[in-house]
Simulated assay, not measured.
Amino acid sequence: MLILAIESSCDEFSVAVMENGKIKSNVISTQIKDHTKYGGVVPELASRLHVENFSKVILDAVSKSKVIWSDIDYIAYTNNPGLIGSLIIGRLVAKTIGLYLDKPTMPLNHMEGHIYSANIDNDFEYPVLSLVVSGGHTQIQLLEKPLDFKVVGTTLDDAIGECYDKVARCLELPYPGGPEIDKITFGGNSSAYEFPKLNLINELDYSFSGLKTASINLINKHRKNNTFNIKDFCAGFQNSAIDYLLNGFEKAIVKYKPRTITLAGGVSANKLLRSRIFSIGNKYNICNILLPDLKYCTDNAAMIAELCNEYIKYK
């Protein structure tokens, strides 16, 4: 079974080739440098750059995989959620290839792809509980069996990645803010500043707007008084955000008793989060703690190929 997968939901255009469940190539064209000067992703620019870059990415992915075009069995692509213009480019490219090769196309969900990114080099044992964390999403999803997605917790306002980005902008750090804050925390005193205690809503739902506002107020207050230390602040901010995330996730573990826990999404590359997820798993005697390889944390087509492979196997 040979799958060509396309991911274009935001500011990356990625193409992957999977053969019999193994990733043969995964090429990503990122636009971070193009959007950094605007402090975030500009949707129109993202879709325009996808148009410019998609042919090079496809040819590179197919060349690296060393497969023959006519042997491809399925073309999978991200259908939702994401930036409308970016999604349309990926869909048009996938449909065009499908028509040319006379092969079926499969529209897939971006969030489901992120969840299955942890399954690329591993095997889920069900039920699976996944903490999905990115610039646009913060969710806890439960899978009692393959492809049985159920959102049991979500953010009611800002996603955690969005919160990081807005605080980083106030700190005058480059976009994206998450990796920059993560780097600065090394050696910082997480107790130097007092951050608000964050409470879950409706049992397992999140709200990051309070942390965002409190953090920006702290920055402005201590800068005005010349008492601001960026290392200590970033360490405290990150500790507060991760504590809040894992508080909800731990409650979900107690409630749903999963056999596998995973991280998914761009923020799953965060060093503190990756470390602490193992501590929680060990606390509840969960042996199957699966984290996506760092190259599969950001938006990429390998996760869409893996999701497509799962749908072919089970549905």
Rank of each mutant, 00 (worst) to 15 (best):
T78K: 07
G85S: 06
Y100A: 14
G85T: 03
L87P: 04
A94L: 08
L83C: 03
L87I: 10
D71I: 00
A76I: 05
S70F: 01
T96E: 04
N79Q: 15
I97H: 05
Y100R: 08
A76G: 05
I89P: 04
I72H: 10
I88Y: 06
Y74D: 05
L99N: 14
Y74L: 15
V93E: 01
Y77R: 06
L92N: 13
N79T: 04
D71Y: 01
R91T: 13
K95F: 02
Y77D: 10
T78E: 09
L92T: 14
S86L: 01
G98L: 04
G85W: 09
Y74Q: 08
G90C: 08
I72E: 12
A76K: 02
I97T: 03
A76P: 02
V93P: 01
V93S: 03
P81S: 11
G90F: 08
L99S: 08
L99V: 03
Y100T: 11
I75G: 11
T96D: 06
G90Q: 05
Y77G: 13
S86F: 03
A94P: 09
L92Q: 13
A94F: 05
P81W: 12
D71C: 01
Y74K: 12
N79K: 15
K95L: 15
L83F: 07
S70A: 09
L99Q: 09
Y100C: 09
L87R: 07
G98A: 04
I88A: 03
A76D: 01
L92G: 04
A76T: 02
L99R: 07
I89L: 09
L83K: 06
G98K: 01
T96Y: 09
A76Y: 01
G98N: 02
L87W: 08
L87N: 05
I75Y: 11
A94D: 11
G85V: 10
R91M: 14
S70I: 07
S86C: 08
D71W: 00
I72D: 10
I89S: 03
L92P: 01
L92F: 07
D71E: 15
N79A: 15
D73A: 01
L87C: 06
